[in-house]
Nucleic acid binder design. Structure first.
Lengths: 258, 258
DNA sequence: TAAATGTTGTTATAGCAAAAACAACATGAG
DNA sequence: CTCATGTTGTTTTTGCTATAACAACATTTA
């Protein structure tokens, strides 16, 4: 019972992000449970006020999620849920396509005109978004990638990204741990951080520096309290600062033993 | 200019169905047009009140559609539109999957219990929904399909559907016009309606009758004024009525010449 | 048959929450 | 100081939610 309730609430939430209102979701779920119900039965099953059931059903019919019988009292039937959901998705997907095309056109039109971005430093929050940015950055590298990271967060994905580029650009990596075998075409130095006071315990805080083509830098910091955030810039000073930073740790890592 | 405005409005609508509010859509579009704008510039470009720009930008940052510079004044950058839209879609798709699974489970659980549906007659409105139902009906046919239609609306799709089943079930068709060549395994009678007073001019009104396995009937009526609607039933009387109806027109169509 | 009861479908309307629009204020750089 | 920025409230609007009341019809009971 409670499990069903939980489940239903989840489904309702999902349906809401497909563009239905709370009532529309509840009514549709109720109808899926007992196909061919009357308005009153729907009201009892869904908890939606009886008078509200009618306009809600109208909307659902408009959205092709419900059909009506011509009996009296009227009975209502849900479209098969997989078809219904697919139908909603299809409409959203078409909108997504439209938005993407339109926006991309605008974006590319404007791309030539401006881009005074180079001197600015951009912040990004959240691992997912950072992952996307990083992927973009690395996959557009043309000459060199220098990486320095002591951070578990995206280790696997970072390694995978680098391996895809290992034959087309020069890659140098300093890190504390490597998963899988190290490709020959990469220069990888593995070294545990000295005491912990330099970089901090890996679980609560981790960092990564990515230098691409000597002109772009992305710096990632993850901490348990404040989530993960990243800075990206093509500004000279910014890139130079982290290049020096990287050189320092790189030479430290090359020293044999500690 | 006006074209751009039209275009923008369209994009805004599309973005709204991806879960953004009007302001969020407008701000994001403005930002795509001039990346790295300040809050005030965004306000001017989008028409969104300046004070509203800030909370809206916050939400967009939360949704990983925008990043901030650490300059003063702050400057804002859009995530690349294709990435942004994809990211929104991914989240919606995951919800869709969740909803579909949950609903389908409920649906299948309940499917055994009931189904007193057989005696009812169901209405469906809108060509798209009807097309889906019809597809479902025809593709689940196991023995016979008898079709009678004088209706341009879904002609091509109907023909295509039938061709897919031509080798597995017996098919008989009466219609006024056929696109493409007629497969040998189907029985098709093509005959123009006599005068127009029986069925009416094809443009303003058209109809179709689909009898499947002798136990299911779907009747479609399209009129210019009231849109397209369909009835579906497995009720004995309903099926028998339209079987007689079909037999009548079938024998009429078999008569040589008019 | 006639009155009483209950149900259905409809309409009107009040409540509510999120978003939109506006106004006011503190800050900070030139 | 002055202007633009960033922040904080308040009001208005909007769309959904919720309740109440009503006419039409069917069902029951006397």
């Amino acid at each position: 019972m409670d499990e069903q309730g939980e489940n239903q609430a989840t489904i309702a939430e999902s349906l809401k992000s497909l563009g239905l209102t709370k009532y529309e979701a509840l009514v549709y779920i109720a109808l899926v449970r007992v196909a061919g119900a009357t308005a009153t039965e729907i009201h009892e099953l869904s908890g939606v006020p009886r008078a509200s059931v009618y306009p809600v059903l109208d909307r659902l019919i408009q959205k092709n999620l419900v059909s009506v019988s011509n009996t009296s009292p009227k009975r209502f039937n849900p479209v098969r849920p997989d078809e219904g959901v697919d139908s909603l998705m299809k409409s959203i997907e078409s909108d997504a396509l439209c938005a993407r095309e339109g926006l991309n056109r605008i974006y590319l039109e404007c791309a030539d005109l401006e881009r005074g971005d180079q001197e600015l430093i951009w912040s990004t929050y959240g691992e997912e978004n950072i992952r996307i940015r990083l992927l973009d950055l690395i996959s557009n590298a043309t000459e060199s990638i220098r990486v320095f990271f002591y951070w578990g967060g995206l280790r696997k994905q970072i390694i995978q990204m680098l391996e895809e580029k290992k034959n087309s650009v020069s890659i140098e990596v300093v890190t504390d741990h490597w998963e899988g075998e190290i490709p020959e075409s990469m220069n990888v130095w593995i070294k545990k951080p000295p005491g912990g006071h330099d970089i901090g315990p890996a679980k609560s805080l981790g960092g990564g520096v990515f230098l691409v083509d000597g002109s772009k830098a992305m710096v990632i910091m993850g901490s348990e309290e404040e989530g993960t955030s990243a800075l990206y810039s093509e500004a000279r000073g910014f890139v130079r600062f982290f290049t020096v930073y990287w050189n320092f740790f790189s030479s430290w890592a090359r020293r044999k033993n500690q």
